[in-house]
Amino acid sequence: MVDPTTNLEDLIQIEICPARFLSPETAQELLNELTNIEGITRAFIHGPRLPTTVPYGPATGHDVDHKFSKTIKIGETELDLAVIFGRIRLEILNEEVRENIREVCERTLPMGYEFRQGLFIQKRQTVSDYAKRGPNADPTTLGLADPKGKVGNRVCMLNPAE
């Protein structure tokens, strides 16, 4: 959860892109290691969608039951993977946190990865965000989900505010 006193503009954003799509087991290991690092404010997992039923074609409506569509456990929170873990974008407090994350990646991603710093999660509301969520929207969910989609089951709070 972002501290309301933190200036969003000062936060650093990084992206970790493994050389391969991660299995749920490796994704769980990486995410658990990341949650142990202090100073990560938000995270965004990106990858191709894992549908529950065949969306189109002659088999439309048949169950997919995908091998990667599993429930993973991050700390005490259970999370249904709706996408295969392709890359993760993180918003962090400072450069020290960034180096800690790099160490975790060295340990958990033996297949290799790309690690870069840049702007990956939007910092200001777009018109679509404004139209969907209004002027007083929670800034923590900004850029984490499609403003035209349903936020409910896509954004997961690991350490909700008391």
Binding site: F21, Y56, V64
Partner: peptide
């Protein structure tokens, strides 16, 4: 793949089997 072919241009998963949204091969 008669339908849903987009795995061809994506990174391979860890097991090396081309990603398939419909999970036809394991």
């Amino acid at each position: 793949r008669g339908a849903t072919v987009h795995g061809h241009s994506l990174r391979l998963p860890e097991d090396g089997i081309m990603f398939d949204m419909l999970d036809r091969c394991r």
